[in-house]
Nucleic acid binder design. Structure first.
Lengths: 202, 202
DNA sequence: ATCATTATGTAACGATCAGTACATATAGGA
DNA sequence: TCCTATATGTACTGATCGTTACATAATGAT
């Protein structure tokens, strides 16, 4: 790919790395609890650099949410969609949910949206729409995975895909809440098999 | 009851009313997002009065959480425990969850713990223990209700009470998240019957 | 009437907040 | 070499933060 040369002083930091650092701070401390001092410290840049690259605190926050929705939050869904056997797919999904709720590389627990961002709904413009879109997208993909099994004949034609997708979403919420509360992944993994069985029952 | 007279200037405000007002502010804006100005304004008292009665901002916050856990959060559980027929009990529980997630008298949506307090786990001392205790207590009471049905013979002796209690808890988490995201109660009530059926299935 | 105790209100403290003005630095293009 | 454009760092702005000192008020007890 042809990299166009850009006039002006080159940026001294990596935009995506800084964004990830900011996300970790927001995830841990929340929007209001994260000060510009916290953010610039973690990102390794100064205030003017942050404002030039990301806009303002709110703009940065919304970008971290968008990043999370397009990256971290998709990892369990990708695991579900990438596994051909539906039982294994559900286990992979739940295992990945539990892993990210307890052992995320940022050190933060739970889910960025469900354990942190949700508290700022109604407080920070742009958040509610993103949370609503994330729910819709996630449930849509979960339902699509069940529908794919119906098409394969593995599940009955009258299998309630949307209902089970919504239930799977709730199970995800439960795990994220418990992850934030400090539960170990071992403790949460105990019920996975019986839940998979129930999710696929007629 | 013999009310002992108390020397000193009588308090000019009602402690419990003020506590409820404070809870509404914390629920809506979170711990960091709620300023002392927000709190004193909603409570109708001045700073020194707040400090004299509640300690400090953190002490007030923890008291609102304790209040929520002993009052609001119990309403759905009381509905579950108070209904003799298990199907009706589950419907009453879920309906009350949905109602409080969308139409709480404070105007705040979702659940105070799951949609607001959870963001301050790790940030405010005393929060994580309270959240952990709330999960344990809720799941215990949910399991006890299923066990009561086993004893009555309505449910099989090998009915997985604890598993179903944990699942019911997750369903609760899903509704609370969606409530905060702005979903209507109608939308959430759609699935209640099928979920009750699944929760009681063998 | 006075005292002890508790509560309230005003004003202020020391600290931190989000964001920016301005000088300087670093690149590519002419 | 000079110009234009973009980035960075220092210092600062105006505002708000959580909390408290101190004067005053309101009660019951003596």
């Amino acid at each position: 790919m042809n990299v166009t040369k850009k006039i002006g002083r080159p940026r001294a930091f990596d935009y995506n790395t800084a964004l990830l650092q900011a996300m970790a701070v927001f995830w841990e401390k929340g929007y209001d609890g994260a000060s510009m001092r916290d953010l610039t410290g973690a990102m390794g840049i100064t205030g003017p650099s942050l404002y030039a690259a990301f806009g303002d605190k709110r703009g940065l926050y919304l970008k971290t949410i968008d990043y999370y929705c397009s990256a971290d939050a998709c990892t369990p869904l990708v695991a579900l969609e990438g596994e051909e056997d539906i039982e294994k797919a559900l286990r992979a999904f739940l295992s990945e949910i539990i892993r990210s709720a307890t052992e995320h590389e940022s050190g933060a627990t739970g889910c960025f949206l469900a354990s942190s961002v949700v508290a700022s709904v109604g407080q920070v413009d742009g958040v509610a729409e993103r949370v609503e879109a994330a729910i819709a997208d996630t449930e849509h993909r979960l339902a699509a995975r069940f529908e794919r099994e119906i098409e394969k004949g593995t599940l009955d034609p009258d299998f309630p895909a949307k209902s089970r997708a919504a239930l799977l979403f709730d199970i995800r919420q439960g795990y994220m809440f418990k992850g934030r509360a400090g539960w170990s992944s071992e403790r949460m993994l105990e019920e996975v098999d019986s839940r998979v069985e129930m999710l696929l029952s007629a």
